[in-house]
Structures are given as structure tokens and as C-alpha cells.
Design a protein around this nucleic acid. Structure first.
Length: 558
DNA sequence: GCATCTATGCAAAATGCGAG
DNA sequence: CTCGCATTTTGCATAGATGC
């Protein structure tokens, strides 16, 4: 599928996710709209606006470490960003965002850059650091993706829909004859070309549009079964490269039989499924084909076995009434065979996606670090109450381990970054150190842990469970009544650690974690108080003692 | 960490060759 | 002409190296 991979998805392959990992389009639009009206759902950004605007995360590096590079305007809240193919991205500034307000302090010879991506620093990482694979992101959120659309699969699904319309005996379309004539012009030179998987050489000779149709159909064919009402229908099927007839999981090929033009089951079999060996030998001899009887015998024996099995399967399946003997297929969904013309494009798409999507690599790594931990559960953990996109973004990056730690940065630019943690100067900074083991972080965590325990009446057993909690949050469907609040606290906890670390690394500034966290969290509560008063009031009355509201003034009990 | 390219391994099909 | 064994070819999947 060179077309799809190299062209169709070229941009998708390098796409990156910036924020809003769990909001749908509507919410995203709302968030953007409210931002433009001055409402900022992220209190962090507010705090940052005063003196360190936009430095919460990536911005820090961008603003200081590379003064010639302007920070992209509200880059982190921009949503999903598609970067052009890497080489072009590095060279051209054509996709750069216009310079927005608040950019006065930047150097004179600034160069416009694309908006933020998962990369931390443009000067060091632009175009590098592959982010999260497109194949992962097309999975749904419960599987670690973002439900991103795969355009290639979407296209194939539409092509498949075309075929299923073509096969519908009850409806006729003006373009059917054109498609039928194309199908009789290659391979088997018959509409039953739709029964087999064609090699690339054969498909390559087709006109581009029909080539796409045949290729898309080929991807779905292994899921399908041709409708056969009787033995005669079976005998009209081709047996080479037909996914119905598998031997040891593979389709059967035979250049001898192909060359001899013996393509259909009825060409080589009698009504009792015995092989017409002598006839085959005769045909091969007549056509001057060099062959071995034993080779032919073994290949036909395989065909006989698989055809017999297929026939037995046909006998077991339900009788599908057909009006005529046109070619048609069934798709088995949940053990329920459905004629293809009833299949929706979305169902085709899902089938195609299943082949492409990959489970996130990060799952394996978390499983190594936490033996016995169900790593799949991280995708349904976290979230919280009106969590700002910036925080969701960070949480998503942590889950995927796409954090540019000291070790990674050092690898990329040895002169500029050290492996050591800038905060404690004790150990090398890997992800576990950054978010869990750093001595400063640990002290902070124990405070948060005590707060959650006492104010939210939440208790979980072991230290490991707490560690997992700090990394991923509580499961969304957790029975605990304060799940939302706890997840919000934890999200801000991670975000505070990350931001304070960035101040230390990029600006040599030391901030205290706890006060920083308090400011951010309080601002968030205030925003929620004004933005979603009803939900907020509901939360107030659930019995926690985390904060109180008195005359529109929120007090944090921390 | 991921994408790309290349090398490698594997199994099945095709072929080579000698013996009968 | 057939058979058995060995070898080559082919198609496919996977592993490893490399670059970003």
C-alpha cells in the first residue's frame, strides 16, 4: 500500500497531539471559544501570564533556551496539530503561526516556527523525537489512542462500500457496468476476481481508481465468505489465492495450474470432490508445461482437503435466501453472518483499523516496572473535574512515557543538557526520577497523600498503589465518591512537579512545589466555581473537607 | 520511541538430478 | 516415465541497524 503509506498518510505519520486528549470536537470548540473571550480554563496559564507567560511546560525552554525562537501563541491549547513531513518542517517556515500578542520581548531576528508539538524545544528537537505513532493514536482512548481517523482506512472503507453496493442484487447503479468491465479485464477475467487476493503486479496494471477498489476489497476479503447455496456455487469459485481455501493458514498458489488456466474448482474436481488428475495432466501436457505429477498431486490434494472443509462449513451455516445466483459475500459479525450490502461504512472502517492499529509500546514498559499491574487500566484512569487541556496533555505524555527527561535531552544535545536532575542534583533524571523518586518530589507527594487521605477520606493500601495513583490517577469508574476531585488534585500534582522541574532546568529558578501547587489548584477551583457553578456546588456537598466556599471566596484546607 | 531500510529466517513450491 | 532426495526459488514475516 505504497500510496496510502507514503502519500495519503504522510502528514498523519508525523502528527502530534498537543492537548484535549479527552474532549470531543464540540468541547474543543467551546474551549477555544471561551479562550478567545478571555476565559482561560487553565489557572496555570493565568498564573503564568503575570510574569512567566507560557512557560508552564514546553514554553519555558522555548522562551529562554532559544531566544531567537518566538513561542507559538497559546501553543499548548491549540489542540491537535498536524506537522508537515519532517524534512519540510525543519526547512520551511510556511506553516508557522502568526506572531501573537505578548511576543515583544523576543529577539530581533526571530524565525517563525510551527506551533507546539510534543517536542520540548524547537532548537534541539524540531523535526526529531518521533512522537506517538499514528498507528497508536488511531486506536480509541480506552486503548491508549485518541480515536484519530486514519484517512487511508477511511478511503478503503468507502471503496469497500462501493463493492458491497455493486454486489447488491436488489439495486442497480449507473457505474456498475464500468466496474464489471474492469473486473473482467484482469486476473480471472471475471467478476469472481473479487474472490481472490491479487498479487501487486496484477493490481498495478489497473487504472488507479479501480486499483484502489480492488486493493481495499483485498484487505477485507479474509473476513468474508462467499455465499454458496449449493455445490454448484462452490464449484464456481476460484481456488488459487482464495482466502476461503487456506492450507496451514495460507492461500494456495500453483504456477503450474495458473499457467494451464485451471482456475476454478470445477476445472479440477468431480462432483464427489475427487480430483480430476488425469484431466489435469492432460491439460498440462497439451500446453507444454513442465510439471511433476507428484507436485500436482500434492497441491491438488491440499485443494481437495480445504474445499471439503469449506463445503462442510457451508452445510453448517444458516441458509441465506438469495434471489439469484449472483456473486455475494457474508461478513461474520459476532457469529452472525450478514450480507455485505448491509454492512455500514463504519463497520468496514473498524475492520480495517483493527489491522493497522498497534497497542502502545508504553504498556510493555510499565508492565516491566510494575510487575502484575494491568497496564491497560492506565487508559481509563485519570481525568478529573474540568481538567485543562494542558494537564490532560501532560498526563497523556506521561502515560506514553513521552517525557523529555534529562537523560533524553542529554542524548540529543550533550553540550546543553546534563543527565543529572536539576532539582536535587543527586541522580540521573529519568521519568521515574522526575515524577516519583526525586527527594523534593517525595516530600511533596507525602503532603498530597496525607491531604487526599484526610480530606477526601480515601485510603489505598500499598505504596505501590499510591505510586500508580500519582502516575496515572484513579480509575474513572472508581466507586469512590471523590474520584473526580482526587484525579484533579493528582493531575495538578503531576503538572506542578513538571513545571517546577522546567523552571529549574531552563531558568535556574527554584520554586517550592507545595505553594506552587496550591496557587494552581486554587485558581482552578475558582475557575470551576465561575464556569460550572452547578457541578461545583454538587461537588461541595459530597462530604470532603478539601476546600470551603464562603461568600464567593474559596479557601483551600491544605 | 518510532519509521525506514536491510538482512535474515522460514515454509512452501518449483526444480535438478540420479536411480530404477 | 516415476520416484525420492536435495537444492533453489519465492513469498512472507520478523529482527536488527540506523536516523531523527
Amino acid at each position: 500500500m505504497s500510496g496510502v503509506e507514503s502519500e495519503g498518510n504522510g502528514a498523519d505519520e508525523t502528527c502530534v497531539i498537543v492537548a484535549e486528549s479527552s474532549v470531543d470536537m464540540e468541547e474543543e470548540l467551546q474551549a477555544r471559544g471561551s479562550q478567545s473571550e478571555g476565559f482561560e480554563p487553565s489557572p496555570s496559564s493565568r498564573a503564568a501570564q503575570k510574569n512567566v507567560r507560557g512557560r508552564e511546560t514546553d514554553g519555558a525552554l522555548r522562551a529562554r533556551a532559544t531566544p531567537e525562537t518566538p513561542e507559538a501563541p497559546s501553543a499548548l491549547a491549540e489542540g491537535i496539530e498536524f506537522l508537515p513531513p519532517r524534512k519540510k518542517a525543519a526547512k520551511t517556515g510556511s506553516r508557522a503561526q502568526p506572531v501573537g500578542p505578548g511576543r515583544e520581548n523576543l529577539g530581533p531576528c526571530e524565525k517563525l516556527k510551527p506551533t507546539s508539538s510534543l517536542t520540548e524545544s524547537e532548537s534541539d528537537l524540531d523535526g526529531k523525537g518521533n512522537l506517538i505513532a499514528h498507528r497508536v493514536l488511531i486506536a480509541n482512548k480506552r486503548e491508549g489512542g485518541l480515536g484519530q481517523i486514519d484517512i487511508g482506512a477511511k478511503k478503503d472503507a468507502l471503496r469497500a462500500k462501493l463493492i458491497s453496493k455493486f454486489l447488491d442484487p436488489n439495486r442497480h447503479y449507473p457505474w456498475e457496468d464500468a466496474l464489471a468491465s474492469q473486473l473482467s479485464n484482469f486476473g480471472l477475467r471475471d467478476v469472481r476476481n473479487l474472490c481472490i487476493l491479487h498479487p501487486e503486479k496484477v493490481v498495478g496494471e489497473l487504472k488507479p481508481f479501480y486499483r484502489e477498489i480492488v486493493e481495499a476489497w483485498g484487505k477485507l476479503l479474509p473476513h468474508l465468505m462467499p455465499i454458496c447455496r449449493n455445490k454448484e456455487d462452490v464449484f464456481r469459485l476460484p481456488f488459487l489465492k482464495n482466502p476461503c481455501f487456506l492450507h496451514k493458514g495460507k492461500t494456495i498458489t500453483s504456477s503450474h495450474l495458473m499457467e494451464a488456466g485451471l482456475l476454478w474448482i470445477r476445472d479440477i474436481m468431480n462432483d464427489d470432490f475427487s480430483v480430476k488428475l488425469d484431466f489435469i495432466f492432460g491439460v498440462l501436457k497439451n500446453k507444454n508445461i513442465n510439471f511433476r505429477k507428484c507436485s500436482i498431486r500434492s497441491i491438488t490434494e491440499k485443494i481437495k482437503n480445504t474445499v471439503t472443509l469449506f463445503w462442510e462449513r457451508i452445510m453448517q451455516t444458516k441458509d441465506i435466501s438469495m434471489q439469484n445466483d449472483d456473486l455475494n459475500f457474508l461478513l461474520c459479525q459476532n457469529n452472525n453472518p450478514v450480507p455485505v450490502q448491509e454492512i455500514k461504512t463504519k463497520a468496514w472502517y473498524k475492520l480495517l483499523i483493527a489491522e493497522i492499529k498497534r497497542t502502545p509500546t508504553t504498556e510493555k514498559i510499565w508492565a516491566q516496572i510494575f510487575p502484575g499491574f494491568n497496564t491497560k487500566s492506565i487508559w481509563t484512569s485519570g481525568g478529573g473535574l474540568f481538567t485543562p487541556p494542558t494537564l490532560q496533555h501532560l498526563d497523556f505524555k506521561i502515560k506514553h512515557r513521552r517525557i523529555f527527561t534529562g537523560i533524553v535531552l542529554h542524548q540529543i544535545n550533550k553540550g546543553k543538557y546534563e543527565r543529572k536532575c536539576k532539582k536535587c542534583n543527586e541522580q540521573d533524571e529519568d521519568l521515574e526520577h522526575l515524577f516519583l523518586d526525586c527527594s523534593l518530589v517525595r516530600a511533596f507527594y507525602s503532603t498530597i497523600r496525607r491531604t487526599i487521605q484526610s480530606a477526601c477520606n480515601f485510603h489505598c493500601g500499598s505504596d505501590t498503589e499510591w505510586t500508580l495513583l500519582f502516575l496515572f490517577g484513579l480509575k474513572k469508574n472508581s466507586a469512590h465518591q471523590h474520584t473526580h476531585i482526587i484525579n484533579t488534585i493528582l493531575s495538578y500534582t503531576r503538572f506542578s512537579v513538571w513545571t517546577v522541574r522546567n523552571y529549574a532546568l531552563y531558568e535556574n529558578r527554584t520554586l517550592s512545589l507545595l505553594p506552587f501547587f496550591k496557587t494552581l489548584f486554587l485558581n482552578h477551583l475558582k475557575n470551576c466555581f465561575f464556569a460550572i457553578p452547578d457541578t461545583f456546588n454538587q461537588l461541595l456537598n459530597t462530604g470532603h473537607t478539601l476546600f470551603t466556599v464562603h461568600q464567593n471566596n474559596i479557601t483551600l484546607n491544605l
